[in-house]
Design a protein around this nucleic acid. Structure first.
Lengths: 127, 127
DNA sequence: CAATTACGGACTTCGTGTGTCTATGATAAC
DNA sequence: GTTATCATAGACACACGAAGTCCGTAATTG
């Protein structure tokens, strides 16, 4: 039960893109150097963020990645869901519709965490 | 990023011990049948609960497992910590003392979930 | 065309969760 | 004391996913 390292990289990358990046797209090599990760690995993480609609990419020379949409709206939960998926952390007695009491408690606990992550926007940390 | 099945089994077992069990200890075979798990596997889970001080065990004939201490005090978090450990869900930039801003947000989100799990006692579900 | 950059699939490695099997130790009943 | 019952612990096997790497392809700029 751990958040993956990929989620960590994604959060740092997004924060960097939101805080520093101007209009120009940023290449993956530059992003990778900042965190000491290989560019090829980070590119797969960025592709997930693209598919989630959080960033947009531009191929070719002077290409790279740029935040898509309003920067103010991007929350921690958006990025975590893009990397970890949206399925529940707790799987129980099999059928999903009739949830046992334990399952209900676990779901509401998870929801408490998600609410916190949803209310915290990345731009709050970009001072 | 999932809770382990072992945590699921532990929660159901503890709920059963708290709700149904009288003073007599309950054998692992009986507990295993209720959930369709092998007794040998469930015994390792129960051993963790013993080491965490949540249940006590009795060897020999008519032995088994029994809830230790006050049943009213046992929370979801106690059991989860016994199975999953107490380390943070999110590991970041390496050093633990100087936490980056992202790390701080993740920790407080995790804490929101833990508070919920800490405040919910198992006996609340044993009607 | 050539250089740059993202995208995608295949692949390896490693750790951990999930179990099983078996031996050992403790206790109660006979 | 002997035997049956029960917990405990270690070794082992297996599957799956996380974490990367490598390489080929596609797109865009100059």
């Amino acid at each position: 039960m751990k958040y993956s390292k990929a989620t960590n990289y994604a959060l740092h990358t997004m924060l960097y893109l939101i805080a520093i990046a101007p209009d120009r797209p940023v290449g993956v090599q530059q992003l990778a150097e900042k965190q000491g990760v290989s560019p090829t690995y980070l590119s797969k993480i960025l592709t997930k963020l693209v598919k989630a609609g959080l960033v947009e990419s531009a191929s070719g020379a002077n290409g790279g990645y740029r935040v898509k949409g309003k920067k103010e709206d991007i929350s921690f939960l958006d990025i975590i869901h893009a990397l970890e998926g949206t399925t529940s952390l707790f799987e129980c007695c099999g059928s999903g519709d009739e949830r046992c009491v334990i399952h209900q408690v676990m779901l509401s606990a998870e929801e408490a965490m998600e609410q916190h992550l949803k209310n915290t926007k990345l731009i709050d940390l970009a001072k």
